[in-house]
């Protein structure tokens, strides 16, 4: 096995990790802050990519295309949010329904076919897999996406410190308490889902430019990658500092680590078709560990709780 091959693949993995990191930050908002596992993202990622590609092909400025992608993502989040809050469908099922619906929307209404290429030679794109090394810094995809990540983290740090952001956090932390403090928890859930999916769509838009095409199945399993990034980041570096901005940075780091590891595994000769299985297994194990840990701690606690009840 040639080490140089692995070494050459690393900048690409880093760029991909950063792009998926934006999606993972979106997942963090729903999964960690709102306490909802939002499966919409599998569809939204592709929606973002598709809208961006089609917009650019129709002569849109690349930044306008990114904005349109984010709006499309927010709308997808809105649909999931309304299915959940207005129609009383459990959040996880609401996400699945939107995701399924989005597949048709992406295929027929936006792309018109399963795969739409967009050449970096013909259009002015922001990022591309050709620009991960050997180009000026300002054009370097890793640099450009890193700027995106930093700006997003800064904006989210600010937002979750505002009254509205605090209300959103309270909604996820304790809905009953939030309502008792006059917070419209339904509205906040919808808002959180929209914000999250807008970021996921932005990630999809950058990804489609990066790989030079939008594909109807590009979002398959995205939620698992997002969760993997969140969990890996938390386990590897999350314990260092509880600062919120740092926690978001950890998510991006988790995503980068995920892609670097994937690169190594591929370099070791794993058939790339096994990647999804590998991702699923990794996420399952990482999710199980805290549960097993808590189970070990709960046993003595249960006894003491019972004791209190007997006294009262």
């Amino acid at each position: 096995m040639e080490l140089i091959k692995l070494f050459n693949a690393m900048p690409g993995a880093l760029a991909q990790g950063l792009i998926w990191g934006i999606m993972a930050i979106g997942v963090y908002i729903t999964y960690k802050i709102l306490d909802i596992a939002d499966l919409t993202v599998d569809g939204t990622l592709c929606t973002g990519g598709a809208v961006c590609v089609v917009a650019i092909m129709n002569g849109c400025n690349v930044f306008v295309a990114l904005l349109l992608a984010m709006i499309a993502g927010a709308l997808a989040g809105l649909v999931t949010g309304l299915l959940h809050t207005l129609m009383g469908i459990p959040a996880i099922l609401a996400g699945i329904l939107t995701q399924l619906g989005l597949w048709s929307v992406n295929l027929v209404a936006i792309l018109g076919k399963a795969n739409q290429a967009i050449s970096v030679d013909k259009y002015e794109l922001l990022v591309s897999l050709r620009w991960v090394k050997g180009v000026p810094l300002l054009q370097n995809t890793i640099f450009v996406v890193a700027i995106f990540v930093v700006v997003i983290i800064a904006l989210l740090y600010w937002f979750f410190g505002t009254e509205l952001g605090c209300a959103l956090r309270a909604t996820g932390s304790n809905g009953q308490m939030a309502r008792a403090q006059g917070i419209n928890t339904d509205r906040n859930k919808v808002l959180g889902l929209m914000l999250s999916n807008a970021l996921v769509a932005l990630s999809g838009a950058l990804l489609s430019q990066y790989q030079g095409f939008a594909d109807v199945s590009m979002g398959r399993g995205a939620i698992v990658i997002g969760l993997a990034a969140v969990i890996i980041g938390e386990v590897l570096v999350g314990w260092v500092c509880r600062n919120f901005a740092f926690q978001l940075a950890c998510v991006a780091i988790g995503s980068i680590v995920y892609y670097l590891v994937i690169q190594v595994v591929l370099w070791l000769g794993l058939d790339s078709n096994y990647l999804k299985l590998l991702s699923a297994v990794v996420v399952a194990i990482f999710l199980a560990v805290p549960y097993w840990k808590s189970k070990m701690h709960v046993k003595p606690k249960r006894k003491s709780e019972k004791g209190v009840k007997d006294h009262a």
Partner: peptide, 21 residues
């Protein structure tokens, strides 16, 4: 709210019934 700190909880309560912007 268990995952928020004491002052944040108090600040949430201080805004009870007020618009949050």
């Amino acid at each position: 709210a268990a995952t928020m700190n004491i002052e944040e909880n108090l600040a949430l309560a201080a805004r009870r019934g007020k618009p949050r912007g």
